[in-house]
């Protein structure tokens, strides 16, 4: 990302340090898309270096890439931008493998990036929805650990949902 032009002089830069020591220099407007960072900035305004010991550099980079895209697209308040954001989001989650998805979700959750958590959980939900209970158990290798009769009890209690 090229730095902003000379006209925007007030942009404050923050240093974010990941667990593996990798640091990222980002504009405040980008980093504050994350609720946790927004809180830190508001509380201790003078500190420019923020350490994030729970997030790996690789995933912090991806989270920040998402933040940049959204912060930039939000500045021009065009209606078409909503669509652009949606498209970009779709591409962003499209080819994530399980490992990345998991760590990204953890990182987003830890940094309170509510919108990003929404996006990633939506992606996982889309992978499980539409499947029957038996299909879920089979595809995701989940064993039914109910005691005899317990599952029947759940079905009976909410019989309308199983009819």
């Amino acid at each position: 990302m090229s730095s902003s032009s000379t006209t925007t002089t007030t942009t404050r830069l923050l240093m974010l340090k990941a667990s593996d020591g990798v640091t990222f220099e980002v504009e405040e407007a980008v980093a504050t898309k994350l609720g946790a960072i927004n809180n830190m900035v508001e509380e201790e305004g003078s500190e420019d270096l923020i350490c994030l010991p729970n997030v790996n550099g690789k995933f912090l980079g991806m989270v920040l890439e998402w933040c940049k895209k959204h912060a930039n697209n939000n500045t021009n308040s065009d209606k078409g931008n909503d669509e652009v954001n949606k498209w970009w989001d779709k591409e962003f989650v499209m080819d994530l493998d399980q490992n990345t998805l998991y760590h990204l979700l953890m990182a987003a959750d830890y940094l309170s990036g509510t919108e990003l958590v929404d996006l990633l959980t939506e992606k996982v939900a889309s992978m499980i929805r539409g499947k029957k209970v038996e299909e879920i158990r089979e595809t995701f290798k989940i064993k039914s650990d109910f005691l005899p009769g317990q599952e029947e009890e759940i079905r009976k209690k909410n019989s309308w949902a199983f009819e």
Partner: peptide, 20 residues
């Protein structure tokens, strides 16, 4: 959070019989 994004209460309740 993932289950909250299921389309309706019916499918969520069905999934409550997957495991404990």
């Amino acid at each position: 959070e993932i289950f909250l994004r299921l389309p309706n209460g019916r499918s969520a309740l069905q999934y409550s019989s997957v495991c404990k």
